[in-house]
Simulated assay, not measured.
Amino acid sequence: MRRSLAARTALVISALLVVAGCGGGGAKKADPKDPVTIDVAVLAATEFYVIPWLVGQKQGFFTDHGVEVGKIVAGSGGSATLRTQLSGGMPIGEIGYKSVLDAWSEDVPVLAVGGGAQGPYGGDFYALADNDRVNELRDIKKWAYTNPGSSVYALSFLLPQAAGLPTKAERISAGGVGEGAALLEAGTVDVAWLPPSLASRNQGKFKLVVSTSKYITDFQQSVITTSPAYAKEHPDVVRGVLAGWQEAAKWITQNPEAAARIYAEHVDLPVAAATSVVKGAVESNVWNVGFNPAALKRGTDAAVVSGFKGEVKYCEFIDTSYLPGAATAELPTKCGA
């Protein structure tokens, strides 16, 4: 029954991919003097994932490469972002890595053409500030994660494993960020995952217990995706988006305060809190338009913990040929060998 449902879902998404593959301006080429306009879908678009898209949009980096990014549409994370991208006729988006794996495993024609978040930034767990009993990883007996199958759920296993600690503990699905914070306040759990925007806004209320970057380095959280049909029909648009995204990520590292003001305006976040998010992302080197094998392997490990089954054939759903020249383009396996 589960396979049948998954197959039906795949058929629906496949149909949507055909629609997305036919959109985006017909045969029009990406030209800085007459740019192709597209909308994009970005997972958790109030968090750090959206910052390169915002900067590229505001600073004209996409336009310089012949693409005008119109709306940045928020996905709700995971496969929901993929559905948001495809059902809205948006040819390009940034999607959670496991969601792309799941779609590919069900024969959905989705293609990862660029990296996104390739570090553990944003994967931290917090306790209430006045909880004197929980101060470090070994103190945690009850974890709150977002949803089953999420990278946050996987981290609740990968983190103690990386620290050489037992992974046995109680894990509770909060269902959302606000619900996780509510579980903390009710004393139901020891720690909950909180996104950087919420944590930076409430520094006196919560305390950091587990900094994920202390235990995990490379970690593929998201990838920039399109459909094979769209990539084949509009290769210059795909290349233009990736080149603009790369320039935006570089600009952020050089202008974190200016990037923070752009981000703050977008999410209605205090500038100080937005600056904390941007600088944290920059310091962790989270953004990379290219691919590296360590990040992909760790992302795959997390997907397996969250329920993914089967062999991962990276060359079937990742295409590095659209990347800018200076981008890294190494996969865990060689393609075409």
Rank of each mutant, 00 (worst) to 15 (best):
residue 1 M to P: 15
residue 4 S to F: 10
residue 4 S to C: 12
residue 10 A to P: 15
residue 11 L to V: 09
residue 12 V to E: 11
residue 13 I to E: 15
residue 20 A to E: 13
residue 20 A to F: 05
residue 21 G to S: 09
residue 23 G to C: 14
residue 24 G to S: 11
residue 29 K to G: 12
residue 29 K to W: 06
residue 29 K to Y: 07
residue 31 D to L: 04
residue 34 D to L: 06
residue 35 P to Y: 01
residue 36 V to T: 06
residue 38 I to G: 12
residue 40 V to H: 07
residue 43 L to Y: 00
residue 45 A to V: 09
residue 45 A to N: 03
residue 47 E to R: 01
residue 47 E to A: 02
residue 48 F to Y: 04
residue 51 I to F: 02
residue 53 W to R: 01
residue 55 V to W: 00
residue 55 V to M: 08
residue 65 H to P: 15
residue 75 G to A: 03
residue 75 G to I: 07
residue 76 S to M: 07
residue 78 G to A: 07
residue 86 L to V: 15
residue 86 L to A: 04
residue 88 G to N: 02
residue 89 G to S: 10
residue 90 M to N: 14
residue 91 P to I: 14
residue 92 I to W: 02
residue 92 I to R: 10
residue 93 G to M: 09
residue 107 D to A: 05
residue 108 V to N: 03
residue 110 V to Y: 15
residue 111 L to G: 14
residue 116 G to Q: 05
residue 119 G to N: 00
residue 121 Y to W: 11
residue 122 G to Y: 00
residue 125 F to P: 02
residue 128 L to T: 06
residue 129 A to S: 11
residue 131 N to D: 15
residue 133 R to L: 14
residue 135 N to H: 05
residue 136 E to S: 10
residue 140 I to F: 13
residue 143 W to S: 12
residue 144 A to T: 12
residue 145 Y to L: 04
residue 148 P to L: 06
residue 155 L to V: 04
residue 157 F to W: 09
residue 159 L to W: 08
residue 159 L to P: 05
residue 161 Q to R: 09
residue 163 A to T: 15
residue 179 E to K: 07
residue 179 E to H: 06
residue 192 A to S: 08
residue 193 W to F: 09
residue 196 P to C: 00
residue 198 L to M: 07
residue 202 N to R: 04
residue 204 G to Q: 06
residue 204 G to M: 10
residue 210 V to K: 00
residue 215 Y to K: 01
residue 221 Q to H: 14
residue 222 S to P: 15
residue 223 V to E: 01
residue 230 Y to D: 14
residue 231 A to E: 11
residue 233 E to M: 11
residue 235 P to D: 08
residue 235 P to C: 10
residue 238 V to I: 12
residue 239 R to S: 06
residue 244 G to V: 05
residue 246 Q to D: 10
residue 246 Q to S: 14
residue 247 E to G: 03
residue 248 A to M: 02
residue 250 K to W: 06
residue 251 W to D: 02
residue 252 I to Y: 04
residue 255 N to G: 04
residue 259 A to D: 07
residue 262 I to T: 14
residue 264 A to S: 07
residue 267 V to N: 09
residue 267 V to D: 11
residue 268 D to M: 08
residue 269 L to F: 04
residue 272 A to H: 05
residue 273 A to N: 01
residue 275 T to G: 12
residue 286 V to R: 00
residue 290 G to D: 04
residue 292 N to A: 05
residue 303 A to N: 13
residue 305 V to D: 11
residue 306 S to V: 13
residue 306 S to L: 05
residue 309 K to S: 15
residue 310 G to N: 06
residue 310 G to C: 08
residue 313 K to L: 12
residue 314 Y to R: 08
residue 315 C to N: 12
residue 317 F to P: 15
residue 318 I to C: 01
residue 324 P to D: 10
residue 325 G to D: 11
residue 326 A to Q: 11
residue 326 A to W: 08
residue 336 G to V: 13
residue 336 G to W: 07
